[in-house]
């Protein structure tokens, strides 16, 4: 995938993801609408590719307003990834040299890789994760399971042990998928399936969509390096 194609695809995906996020806030309070109506308009323009540099900069300032409004991210990790992708796109547009642009865009691919690897590392060094107890706790009493029926998965410790190790091994092995394009595509399909499962069981729909927006950067980087 060429640099320009990957950049443009990231813009389109980010615009669509922002539109989805904005739609969820439009029935909110006036102080939310003041932020999310302009954000939706700029996101639409980003999808269609109008003045993308300035649109990204505008969205970046709106991101600051969001952080001010909610005194931090509204939805933890998914907002952080949203701000990261947007910041990288904005920087890429305003950097003067192609080499620097590629360095900035490569940073997004690096952070995507780290988002899996570090998550796997912190789990594998934790004895409760290795024993399946941590995932059991997630289902038993965390705020995430979307229904009491899903919470009931806590009563299946063997299944959760297998699930824990599947997640740990996938997250740790993700960087190896960069070795070739076919393995990377397999890695990204598994990753997307993982996010989709989290979205269904824990209601983390925003994670699914925003992580997808970073995939073009890693497809480009793999092509560039290997």
């Amino acid at each position: 995938m060429s640099f320009d194609d990957a950049l443009r695809l990231t813009e389109i995906l980010l615009g669509l993801v922002f539109l989805q996020q904005c739609a969820e806030h439009l029935k909110g309070t006036v102080s939310e609408q003041v932020i999310y109506i302009p954000r939706a308009l700029l996101s639409g323009l980003l999808v269609f590719g109008f003045f993308t540099s300035w649109i990204c900069l505008g969205l970046w300032f709106i991101a600051l307003a969001q952080l001010h409004r909610f005194q931090g991210p509204y939805n933890g990790g998914s907002d952080r990834m949203s701000h990261l992708v947007l910041s990288i796109l904005t920087l890429t547009h305003f950097l003067p040299e192609q080499q620097w642009k590629e360095l900035a865009f490569g940073y997004l691919a690096l952070q995507l890789t780290l988002s899996y690897f570090i998550s796997g590392w912190v789990k594998v060094v934790n004895p409760e994760w290795r024993a399946g107890q941590a995932l059991q706790d997630v289902f038993r009493y965390s705020a995430y399971p979307v229904s009491e029926q899903v919470r009931g998965w806590a009563d299946h410790p063997r299944l959760l042990l297998v699930m824990s190790w599947s997640v740990i091994l996938f997250e740790l092995a993700f960087p190896l998928s960069l070795l070739s394009q076919p393995t990377l595509i397999v890695g990204l399909v598994v990753a997307a399936t993982f996010h989709f499962t989290n979205a269904c069981l824990f209601g983390l729909n925003r994670f699914f969509w925003i992580w997808l927006t970073a995939y073009p950067s890693i497809l480009w980087l793999q092509d560039r390096i290997f």
Binding site: Q71, G77, D79, R80, L84, S87, I118, S119, V122
Partner: peptide, 27 residues
């Protein structure tokens, strides 16, 4: 305010990605 809010952006630009490193008490 702009400078103050920019600092809120730091965890996004230099993220830690320690998802579920421990299962904290849940409110």
């Amino acid at each position: 305010r702009l400078v103050q809010d920019s600092f809120l952006l730091l965890p996004a630009v230099v993220p830690s990605w320690r998802f579920f490193d421990e299962i904290a008490p849940s409110p």
